Computed example of a mutant assay.
Amino acid sequence: MKILVPVKRVVDYNVKIRVNPDGSGVDLTNVKMSMNPFDEISVEEALRIKEGGDAREIVVVSIGPAKAEETLRTALAMGADRAILVETDDAVEPLAVAKILKGVADAEKPGLIIVGKQAIDDDSNQTGQMLAALAGVGQATFASAIELFSDKARVTREIDGGLQTIEIKLPAVVTTDLRLNEPRYASLPNIMKAKKKPLEKKSPADFGVSTAPRLKVLRTEEPSGRKAGVKVKSVAELVDKLKNEAGVL
């Protein structure tokens, strides 16, 4: 079985982002970029499935600028076999991403597509669901455990009430949650080997997909600063403030 794993280049989660003065978006000047954390989890899960003998090849794909090649090389250093870069300088929205991924999946014929549940830059949480709908296959979202049984996958997913276990027929799309696994670090020898692994470049036009935006961002603002707390002398005063000032009781 072949596993397809999309990965996205985003601002590193340790970086404190800055908003452009005109509110047009996030300032990316000299900002450290890295692989989306949920996509790291997806790559790690694919590697574990392959190491368990249930997959023969892992293909990673990224849609973005030429610099996204660095993100793909990271995935190759972790252990992926091949990479595909769909190169575009546009800010690609989830629907266009899903359409491009469907084109890649039609060509690669993977038995399983593992997608990060969301990207930490736009938090859309849409691509996996859209991809499953476009491809006409089953989906299991927010996975915290994945087990494969011949032509089926048993997925434990996180819901508001706890954990839900479902069974889906392969091929399918699975989106990963934080508690699925702990991604490995790429070793120096594997980083060197990754430079020789095949990386194919394509464009959205190769899949007949337009990346023209459908949405318009009106303004981007930083969250308001947190107000300082106050000390109370008694439980009664606390209840009074919660009820009459905060309005939460």
Rank of each mutant, 00 (worst) to 15 (best):
D106K: 10
T141P: 02
L134K: 11
E158N: 08
T127D: 00
G103V: 12
D160C: 04
A132H: 08
I146G: 01
V137H: 05
T156Y: 06
I120Y: 12
R157T: 14
A135L: 15
A105W: 14
D123G: 05
A132N: 11
Q118G: 03
T141S: 06
N125R: 09
Q164F: 07
V104A: 06
A145D: 15
D121G: 06
V155I: 15
E108K: 02
D123W: 15
D160M: 07
A133E: 15
I100F: 14
E147S: 10
A153H: 06
L131T: 13
N125A: 15
L134A: 14
G128A: 07
F142A: 00
T156C: 08
A119I: 04
Q164S: 07
P110G: 01
I114W: 02
V104W: 14
D121F: 08
K117G: 02
S150N: 13
K117M: 11
K117R: 09
R154G: 02
G116W: 00
R157K: 13
K99S: 12
R157I: 10
V137S: 08
G103W: 11
E147A: 11
G161E: 11
G161V: 05
K152P: 03
G136A: 10
G136V: 09
A133T: 14
A105E: 11
K102F: 00
N125K: 08
A145K: 13
K102H: 06
A107E: 14
S144Y: 00
L163F: 14
